[in-house]
Simulated scan of single mutants.
Amino acid sequence: MPKSRLEDVAKLAGVSTATVSRALTSPSLVREDTLARVRDAIDALGYVPDASARTLASGRSHTIAAVVPTLDNAIFSHAIQGMQEVLAAAGYQLLLGSHNYDSNTETDVVRALSERAVDAMVLVGADHAPETLSILKQSQTRTIVTWALSNALPCIGFDNFEIGALAARYLFDLGHRHFGMISGIARHNDRARLRTEGFVTALRALRAELPPQAACEQPYSFAGGRAGLQDILRNSPTRPTAVFCGNDVLALGCLFEATALGISVPSQLSIVGCDDLPISAEIAPGLTTVGLQSSLLGKKTAIALLRWLQDGVEPGRTEMPISLIERGTTAPPR
């Protein structure tokens, strides 16, 4: 069966092609009875509007792309869901791409999405290859950075340095003096790098230290958290009484491994994560963590993009709040 055309819809509805086009793009300008006939014709023919033609005519595709490090992490899916809810209500579609923390793959994904003439692009973090930024500049794609604060692009994110510093001050105030840290892989990941820098810098200001042997980088997974604790216990010159993990997934893996090794949490080891995933409040003991409002970040990002696209108001720099959520995995050292 041949594909239905705009002309076919117009003929069946008994109107001009211009009226059909207006019914698709500006239905409020079409009389209700005419609009009903056009919609009935579209349903009867199974007509699908040509998105590329509409984009060419209007200069807008009504699509926004979001490129995230991974879809295998609830913290990003919560932000995407928040973004999707706001954009869908405004008639925009959200396209997704992921790159598994690989900058070359991110460049390829951004190039592919830019070729689809998306109206705007959402990136995670401030670290991006020069080729990626060049593609966005050449395509004149409106771009906003999320999860981090950027001096080069509009951004809605968290102060990742302060996340690490907040965890350090909290553990120090509890009385801990021997620390460990399990970070995500810092290469191509400014969030992981800054959280480590914040933790180390804050401890140094308090005249405490994080020995290099007591810190390690691991993939963001439960297995990474388990391996991280093993690494710290094996290499640290002094057994830590407190460990800060770069996100909740690492922290939960650390907790699982501590339990398997017979290390009592929190009486022998305190653990702090970052994110506040839903599971963090449900396990026993509950995970102490630095809370990040990921769903709100997604909604704020979508609102900022819509204002940019519809009203020409370019987003500035928005810093999202963070908070220390104290639960059962932390206590003063024994």
Rank of each mutant, 00 (worst) to 15 (best):
V30D: 09
A51D: 01
N247I: 02
D8S: 00
T19M: 10
T17F: 04
L45G: 05
A227G: 08
E115C: 09
L24N: 08
R207S: 15
A242F: 04
G225W: 07
M1L: 13
I75N: 02
P154Y: 06
T105Y: 02
C274W: 06
R307S: 15
N73R: 11
N247A: 08
L233W: 11
L133I: 10
R39W: 10
P49Y: 06
T146P: 03
G312F: 13
M181E: 01
L309H: 10
I163Q: 08
A214Q: 01
P212E: 12
A168K: 05
G184N: 09
I144F: 03
A74P: 05
T238C: 08
A148F: 08
H178G: 01
D40A: 15
G175C: 13
P2F: 01
G316Y: 00
V86F: 00
N104F: 11
N160G: 02
D43Q: 14
D248G: 08
V15Q: 02
S98F: 13
D43K: 14
A205W: 01
A186Y: 00
N73A: 14
P285L: 08
L35C: 06
L306I: 10
T289A: 04
T201P: 05
H99D: 05
M121D: 01
T241W: 02
G273R: 07
R5N: 09
D127C: 07
F158N: 00
I303D: 10
A202Y: 04
G125R: 07
G312V: 12
T141D: 02
F179E: 00
S295H: 13
A167D: 08
L123Q: 04
A112V: 10
L166A: 07
Q84A: 11
I80F: 00
E326S: 12
A331H: 10
T201I: 06
T17Q: 13
P333S: 11
S280Q: 04
Y47Q: 07
D275Y: 03
A168S: 08
K299R: 15
L136V: 14
N189L: 00
L6F: 07
R334E: 14
T288N: 05
D102A: 01
I303S: 10
V68M: 06
S270G: 13
C155F: 08
P130T: 13
R60T: 11
S264A: 15
V272M: 10
G82A: 13
I144D: 07
T141G: 06
D108T: 03
S58L: 14
G286R: 03
M181K: 01
Q218N: 05
G312L: 13
A205I: 07
L123C: 07
P212M: 02
D275H: 04
T34R: 11
G82E: 05
R317D: 10
V68R: 06
S26L: 04
R22D: 05
L95C: 02
R193V: 05
L95W: 05
A89C: 03
I135T: 13
H188T: 00
G14S: 12
W308I: 12
L292Y: 06
D275V: 09
V124H: 02
T330R: 05
G97P: 03
I325T: 13
R327I: 12
L194P: 06
P333K: 07
L324Y: 05
T34K: 14
D108L: 06
Q93K: 03
V313Q: 15
S280F: 09
